[in-house]
Design a protein around this nucleic acid. Sequence first.
DNA 1: CTCGTGACTTACG
DNA 2: ACGTAAGCCACGA
Length: 101
Amino acid sequence: MVTKFQKRVYEKLQQVPKGKVTTYKELAKAVKSKAYRAVGTAMKKNPFAPKVPCHRVINSDGYVGNYTAPGGINKKIELLRKEGVIVQNHYIDLNKYLYIF
DNA sequence: CTCGTGACTTACG
DNA sequence: ACGTAAGCCACGA
C-alpha cells in the first residue's frame, strides 16, 4: 500500500526538474522528516514509476547510491546522463545538479 | 506490539 | 582519508 509518508516523498520528488537531482537527505528534509532510510525504502517500492523519477535521488555526498529496478545502478546512471547530468564513476557534481526545494 | 531489514547519515578510531 | 559502528525512521512479518 501507499502510506501518507510515501505520498509526501513522491510528491516532493516530482518537483525535481529534468537534468537535476536531489539527495535522500534533502528529500527527507523537504517532508519535514529525518527518515533518510525510509525515503530509500519508499523509492524501492515506487508504485508510481516512472511518474516518480526515483533515479534522480542520490546520496548526500553525490554518490549515485543504489538502484533496484531492472538494469541496476548502471541504468540509473544512463537515465541521468540522458537528462543532461554528468555522472563520473558513480558520482555527481552536487554544486551543479543538486535541486533545492 | 515487538523484531528485523534497508536505494541512508553521521560520528569515531 | 578509510572502514566500521551507531543512530535513525518507516514498513512488513
